[in-house]
Write a protein that binds this DNA or RNA. Structure first.
Lengths: 215, 215
DNA sequence: GTCTATATCGTGATAGAC
DNA sequence: GTCTATCACGATATAGAC
């Protein structure tokens, strides 16, 4: 199990600085990408924030695109993990979706992934775009799957379109960030989430009414 | 009515180039802000795209912030006008909201206003942010008002929260752009809109059921 | 691995001629 | 109003010493 490259150093050894600069660079790049986007994030700013020098940075990464890729992949990794664990909650379809919608989010700051989707350079690069596409695809597919389960189990009415509704839910989160930022207030974000859950609950009521009325 | 400054030259006179450069600068800035954001839009790029020279640009505008302000105000003016006319449609609350949701939009390109909300420099500047805040406020208030009308008229069930639902609807549009861009496909945007309208229709059905069942 | 020096280019603006 | 010249600075690296 001993490897020349240190992926996840099981026991941090004496030369514990190993990989430290690299991690600090990724962390700083993630912060800057989040707030300023790809275009607005300069190598010099990354160096300043991370405390890593010029030469050191270019030793670990070929340049800005490679650094950005590492940062984006880390973002997606974490966000996917959060989504996965929320979707894995016990309970009804509504409860599982509600668990995802109520994952802790910094509404005023926006989505670490969604932010980058606006960036033309990111979207134009297949490499940078792929992790983002994968993340959103994953979330939408999971949501659609949970909704389908809820339709089959009779939790929702039969006319609910799981794919379209999944797209709606994913959109509400991303759009909620926009409303929160522009109004400098997290309330619109929270209300949009609450209204979405309320819509699903009413679909459940409707399913209930339809079942008792028809059969 | 004769004025030394030409706001809206009623009859374009012989020196018809008057104000032409200014308009071309604004148009180019709008295009660039839309695709590349504030940080990514440089005066030199604006000059190149508009065909207006350096000196001319700085004659008409003090600098990049002033140009951006003019461009953003123009964006907001147009978007508000579209929203206003869509909301003014005849029909039920659902029909009026549907008219707004189905206004022509370039889903892959995103929202000219929402795009800028991501930009930290725009959000940090009260001047640049104000038109955007006003626009989103207007849309949300109008949506909430139409929803309230629908509740009063009995079109929707009594439990619908007009403000939260307005926030949800505005969020769906903004978030739909994100899904469309990241998947390079307008379908998620269109489905999110369709699902939203479907949700409102089901609320109307529920209102109907409640009225016939209770009274 | 990290540092400093150097290089090229773009950005954002000013000055002054025409 | 528009043009060209000029400028200080930052972005994005490369080179080579330590």
């Amino acid at each position: 199990m001993k490897s020349t490259v240190s992926d996840h150093p099981a026991k941090p050894d004496l030369n514990s600085k190993e990989g430290d600069s690299r991690e600090r660079l990724i962390a700083s790049t993630r912060e800057l990408l989040w707030s300023r986007g790809y275009i607005g994030t300069s190598p010099s700013a990354i160096q300043a924030r991370s405390g890593v020098g010029q030469g050191s940075m270019y030793h670990h990464f070929k340049g800005k695109p490679e650094l950005a890729l590492a940062a984006i992949e880390r973002n997606v990794e974490e966000l996917m993990h959060v989504a996965e664990s929320r979707f894995a909650s016990q309970g009804t379809a509504i409860e599982r979706i509600s668990a995802y919608l109520h994952a802790p989010r910094d509404a005023m700051r926006g989505c670490q992934a969604g932010r980058l989707v606006q960036d033309p350079d990111v979207i134009a690069s297949p490499e940078l775009r792929k992790p983002l596409t994968d993340l959103f695809e994953f979330v939408r597919v999971q949501l659609a799957h949970i909704l389908s389960t809820g339709i089959e189990s009779g939790e929702f009415d039969q006319n609910l379109d799981p794919i379209a509704t999944a797209d709606m839910i994913a959109s509400v989160i991303q759009g909620g960030y926009v409303l929160a930022r522009v109004s400098r207030d997290t309330a619109p974000f929270n209300r949009a989430i609450a209204a979405t859950i309320d819509m699903l609950k009413k679909r459940a009521e409707l399913g209930q009414l339809q079942r008792t009325a028809t059969f």
